[in-house]
């Protein structure tokens, strides 16, 4: 595939801890991806609209506020409702292990918890993304 993977890095929820989001955005860039970074305090509606307009392959959501069980599934659900359910949705942040099975059942492809090397997230995306060559 000769075109770069397009990723939306977004922060749903109200927390301002964007160290992880910014580090992962840079790591994705350095792995040859086109990263659309949308900043703090994004509602699921805003995230989904951006994902559609930018026609990204991947939606990467970083959240440390504890509202993941509410907000992450909502992003997936809205994407489906709007006919953009083909995008790979992944999440990262302080997310208790207990919540991960639920999030996966709601369509989040993978959850990356603290300490995950960026290379692991990059590998996951490269092997799971659906990009027509």
């Amino acid at each position: 595939m000769d075109r770069p993977i397009r990723v939306l890095v977004a922060k749903p929820g109200l927390d301002g801890h964007d160290r992880g989001a910014k580090v992962i955005a840079r790591a994705f860039r350095d792995a040859g991806m086109e990263v659309i970074y949308t900043g703090l305090r994004q509602t699921p509606e805003q995230i989904v609209e951006a994902a559609i307009q930018e026609d990204v392959d991947v939606v990467a959501l970083s959240i440390l506020s504890g509202a993941h069980n509410t907000l992450l599934p909502k992003v997936v659900q809205l994407l489906k409702e709007k006919g953009a359910g083909d995008k790979l949705v992944v999440g990262g942040g302080v997310i208790p292990p207990d919540d991960i099975p639920y999030l996966k059942s709601q369509g989040i492809a993978e959850i990356f918890t603290p300490g995950t090397p960026t290379s692991e997230s990059i590998e996951f995306i490269k092997s799971h993304v659906r990009v027509e060559a």
Binding site: G13, L14, D15, R41, T43, S65, G66, A67, H68, N69, T70, L71
Partner: peptide, 20 residues
């Protein structure tokens, strides 16, 4: 977080964040 950024618990942006 809603308190920290000046929203009451019943604000739409507070969804999922109250008391977290």
């Amino acid at each position: 977080l809603p308190t920290q950024i000046g929203y009451d618990s019943d604000h739409p942006l507070a969804e999922g964040e109250v008391g977290k």
